[in-house]
Design a protein around this nucleic acid. Structure first.
Lengths: 343, 343
DNA sequence: TTGTATGCGTTATCAT
DNA sequence: ATGATAACGCATACAA
């Protein structure tokens, strides 16, 4: 048989009408047990699989769109994995588009999603305005790990996370605590929130924020570490009055800091403490052993999928769109230690 | 307007028949320029997007299925990114399913792909027999980075890769070169091919393969490193007569070896040289600096997508299904060094 | 060149 | 409880 069997083939094979087959497929209770069995056997015999495309012409699609700028980002890859897993549990499929850094390409990929009439779109990275306008109000939008004004965002409490980081460092006796976020693609709002948490943490600890301890110039969004990022970092770390501890806006940045520090002979944690953010898998490797702020990825995934399928009200109690923030968790490893004693 | 506009809405708005709209959409040259413009304007005005599901009932689907067991595996994530990018360039979308380690779940995810009538399925991980049988002959199957008998497989030349690794180590004066592959999920055939390349490399170098220098017990497939994997590794590395150099079947295994060696105080590369396989992103980090065998991921992605869209004959000259193997590349970093002088 | 009619596989409505 | 039939949105063969 060249082409896959249709519901009609099943019906005629089972000697019933296609309506009955459909009823069996839909799990309707009104169908007689003997007929149900005949249909089930026919399906099995013919290897029939319902055509999802045809089905979605009459029913709500069970496909969820995921848009991410860079799957190579371990945090995104891990989050996407959890999302797919939970979506599958809820009988939904994932149409994945990765947009890369080019804005036009982004629109084209998002357009593809709307043409597929996905039930909802989940954004792991902030889309451009153009791309966002494409999607229209009939398709549900949920933002994960990033913040989008006027839209439902589900994320870790970024500010609380960096506050936690500062608190941890302050408890270790650090006074000169810096913050670096530059040039590694992430949502600007997220960066801002994490910086805010850092500021807040400093205030609570009774510490002052010095401009010289900050590295925040924002480069191209959604981009790989630029070749000269290491140089910038080295210059920052090479300063006479450099911080004794650093809060990195993401683990990826922390990884770069480690490289720069190594190159400069600055020992971590002996003479520089470092806290990351995200707790990507490699952070736990013995060579890295990064103290970091872990995101509750499974909860994030569950909530975002629920919101995508059931609507915002299913996860947000009040009047959506309201954002919901989950608590972060400090994971202490070996990149942080007691502040060096004053020389 | 509650529901998205259809081709009929566009037609009536433009004052033409739906056929003309369709013709414009299909890029037919036969349509009058003035009508084409009217249609295009109407589309723009209404924000019309063709319904892909409905379209695919008459045309070949432009959705490609990707099945992977674990997106957390950096090699898979990177490969998937390239695949999506090239598929997009060819105007196709990616329906992604991640199967995890459970076999039944695997079938369910693959079933979902066939119900969506994807144009082709691309396997980044070896599926179980059950899952494979589900998919039937009308859906094209391509295997990437793994080997499947009787099917089109596109992969790096695994044997050549590990041979390269051995050659590199032998050139550095190593005699006792081991091979470890145990317990980190991968296709058994791939493991076998890489081991074969190791053996061949040893033979060419005039070196003998000793059983004691091998760690190949295969644990659960498709699984995360088990908790006691470190223990096994430490025991292996702690032996009196351990190899002075190791070929790891994948970078992920190499990462584990590094941890174990560190824990034992075995210095890399001074007293143990190590070569990985895949060249995942983290391998280039200064703390890891892993000498490894790089796969031509972009070429892999391009070929597999072409094969998925155009059929096996588009990439394989002869009579498909034939497998095609791409040459690997040795990337030398700092995990390999001259063999320690005999004591 | 443009419009009309039909089919694609499924669900949903409505008689029976 | 079951079956006939009308949508669903689009492409295509054919007629005009």
């Amino acid at each position: 048989m060249r082409r896959p069997p249709t519901i009609i083939d099943v019906a005629s094979y089972a000697g019933v009408s296609k309506s009955s087959v459909s009823n069996v497929l839909q799990g309707k209770r009104t169908v007689d047990e003997t007929i149900r069995k005949r249909v089930l056997d026919a399906i099995d015999e013919l290897g029939y699989r319902p055509n999802a495309g045809a089905r979605y012409m009459r029913q709500r699609s069970k496909v969820l769109g995921v848009v991410v700028d860079d799957l190579t980002n371990p945090f995104h890859a891990e989050l996407a994995t959890y999302i797919e897993a939970y979506a599958a549990k809820r009988m939904h499929s994932i149409l994945l588009v990765v947009t890369g850094s080019q804005l036009e390409h982004q629109s084209s990929r998002v357009r593809s999603l709307v043409e597929h009439r996905v039930a909802a779109m989940m954004f792991l990275s902030a889309p451009g305005k153009k791309a966002l306008e494409l999607v229209g109000p009939e398709i549900r939008k949920v933002f994960v790990g990033i913040r989008m004004a006027k839209e439902l965002s589900i994320a870790v409490d970024d500010s609380a996370g960096t506050s936690l980081a500062v608190e941890h460092l302050a408890a270790l006796g650090h006074k000169k605590i810096g913050f670096v976020s530059a040039m590694l693609g992430n949502d600007p709002n997220v960066e801002a929130a994490r910086f805010k948490g850092y500021q807040h943490g400093m205030r609570v600890a009774g510490l002052g924020v010095e401009e010289a301890h900050l590295l925040r110039e924002v480069g191209a969004r959604n981009s790989e570490p630029s070749p000269n990022y290491q140089e910038i970092l080295k210059q920052f770390l090479g300063r006479r009055n450099r911080p004794t501890a650093l809060v990195a806006a993401l683990d990826r940045v922390a990884l770069e800091i480690i490289s720069a520090a190594d190159a400069l002979g600055i020992r971590i944690p002996e003479s520089l403490s470092l806290v990351g953010f995200d707790d990507i898998t490699i952070a736990s490797h013995s060579r890295i052993a990064l103290t970091t702020i872990a995101q509750p990825m499974k909860d994030l995934a569950r909530l975002v999928v629920d919101a995508a399928i059931d609507g915002p009200s299913a996860v947000a109690g009040g009047k959506p769109p309201a954002s919901i923030f989950l608590p972060p968790r400090l994971v202490v490893r070996r990149s942080t230690a007691q502040a060096p004693t004053k020389r």
